[in-house]
Amino acid sequence: MSRYRGPRLRVVRRLGELPGLSRKTPRRAYPPGQHGQARKKRSEYAIRLEEKQKLRFNYGVSERQLIRYVRKARRAAGSTGQVLLQLLEMRLDNTVFRMGMAPTIPGSRQLVNHGHITVNGRVVNIPSYQCKPGDVIGVRQSEDNRSRKLVETNLQFPGLAHLPSHLEFDKNKLEGKVNGVVDREWVALQVNELLVVEYYSRKL
């Protein structure tokens, strides 16, 4: 299943607030479609599916990628749900977004893909790169300062107001550092990760 490229507000109306996908707030508070306002009882499967879809759309990963992250989280020590969130939060595109260098995760993915972002002084154009404690995230230096201008413009309207405790960012140098692994309380997305693990427990 490929990455979603359709109307973002439609997804936000269906799943609730997704801070990584869009900064816009929908005018209508109910889901889209003919039966959006009709109240109907949701099955346990539907509830788990919705939580899984929140992760997929917020972090912009495909179904295949999310399955890989779940398998990796299962092999790691600790709570599978919490490790899964940490793996997604420590992606380079999400780290760039959380530092305020892009207004949304799709925007930060574009910055990374186009070679505007460096990790430890080297250009990294892989959005799924896993950031590690000690990594220094910066902006590529060039003669026309194109990368710097893009990031400076984005910093005027950051996607989220607060910088997580595991990150630090210097707006003058346009340089940030990963000091540790994200804590659960700093995950901006309102999601029940245990339901996501339960959803995949029957499939994997």
Rank of each mutant, 00 (worst) to 15 (best):
70 V>K: 02
51 E>I: 02
15 L>H: 05
133 P>M: 07
77 A>Q: 12
151 V>F: 00
135 D>R: 10
97 F>L: 02
52 K>G: 02
170 D>M: 07
25 T>P: 01
37 Q>N: 14
194 L>M: 15
88 L>N: 12
72 K>L: 15
30 Y>L: 02
138 G>E: 04
54 K>I: 03
157 F>C: 11
118 T>K: 12
22 S>Q: 01
104 T>L: 07
151 V>L: 03
185 E>P: 08
163 L>A: 12
81 G>F: 02
104 T>G: 09
94 N>F: 11
63 E>K: 00
32 P>A: 06
184 R>V: 11
180 G>H: 01
44 E>M: 10
63 E>F: 03
33 G>M: 00
166 H>K: 06
71 R>P: 07
15 L>S: 04
146 R>V: 12
1 M>Q: 12
12 V>R: 01
120 N>K: 04
36 G>M: 04
186 W>M: 14
132 K>W: 05
12 V>C: 01
47 I>S: 05
21 L>Y: 09
192 N>E: 04
20 G>H: 03
1 M>I: 11
141 Q>E: 14
124 V>D: 11
58 N>D: 15
151 V>S: 03
130 Q>C: 14
103 P>E: 10
119 V>T: 03
71 R>Y: 13
106 P>K: 00
8 R>H: 07
10 R>I: 02
77 A>N: 07
168 E>H: 09
118 T>R: 14
123 V>A: 12
162 H>N: 15
139 V>Y: 04
144 D>A: 05
82 Q>W: 05
174 L>I: 03
177 K>V: 14
179 N>L: 15
174 L>V: 04
157 F>L: 13
3 R>E: 11
25 T>Y: 09
127 P>H: 03
37 Q>I: 06
116 H>I: 06
66 L>C: 02
2 S>Y: 09
92 L>F: 05
191 V>I: 14
123 V>H: 08
52 K>P: 04
95 T>S: 11
61 V>N: 11
4 Y>Q: 03
118 T>E: 13
174 L>F: 06
32 P>S: 08
100 G>E: 07
202 R>A: 12
156 Q>P: 01
121 G>F: 10
